[in-house]
Amino acid sequence: MSRVIFPLIVVLVLIAIPILGVKVAGLHLLFGVVIPYVAFAIFILGFIWRVIYWAQSPVPFRIPTTAGQQRSLPWFKQSRWDNPFTTGEVIVRMALEVLCFRSLFRNKRIDFRQLPDGTPILRYSPTKWLWAFALLFHWSFLIILIRHIRLATVPIPGPIEFLDHLDAIFEIGLPQLYLTDLTILAGLLFLLCRRLFIPQLRYISLPADYFPLFLIISIVCSGMLMRYFLRTDIVGVKELVMGLVSFHPHAPVKDIGTIFFVHIFLVSCLFAYFPFSKLMHMGGVFLSPTRNLANNSRYKRHINPWNYPVKTHPYEEYEEEFREFMKQAGIPVEKE
């Protein structure tokens, strides 16, 4: 259970820090400017470092997982997206993987169940839900992130404005409710509940699996609180963010609202934590040799940079040992 409690406590502490820091110690500058800068720097440098760290190791063998028919003879229809042969096909495979979670989708499974009276019914098993909610979460997250650009731009670019309108299309409440706020929360809660209540998942989960969930849930909640419930000085926020992105930071206005500092601090934590965690799957998926390579190793030689000579058993030694047997059996030999 400590695997759940520990990350929860850490997140609670992280929430408490800016409240104390701003309310009690009045460290507005630290929480509004310094920490976001530091966190962002850690994120960028850490991300680059991690990708370089991965890239430093070569890909010695061409080991794509082939999930469909290969390209061989013209009368067999190649599964181009599941078994790519060209770089173009690999790009499509990767795009389907990254944008649609194709492998996870493959997980779909139809269950046949019988009602007590024997009538069979059809239903989708939870594995399908994993795909759906994972997609929901990731896409919501992306849209929310893009939406935030409006805080850092004057004038707000058209596409961002459009996205913003789209997201609030139902025009519920004031300020208008964003759809993605709900969907990301739904996605997160589903992912968390899976880990908590499916025994198999609970068994394999580490604190490092719960921590990002708790952290992102807190970020979403603090963001929603800020927008829908607690008063924040939106002009002050925009001024601060504009200052940050234009590298002319100035101290935030005092009455900007503590909840903002909680939000930005948690976001900073997420950014700083990102390169050192499993969240790097975002970058790693592009480097996964079972997905990003074309299945054409018989067509084109793949080079292994550290391919070294090994001790083999050459034919000469073989014949040396078995020559008499071979001659008796009428098998041709090199040396009579």
């Binding site: 139809i110 269950d111 046949f112 098993s125 025994p199 198999q200």
Partner: peptide
């Protein structure tokens, strides 16, 4: 064993 039992209980597909 408990961890395996949950799997047995939950999956209904005869082939899975």
């Amino acid at each position: 064993p408990e961890d395996g039992a949950k799997f047995l209980r939950n999956k209904k597909d005869p082939f899975a």
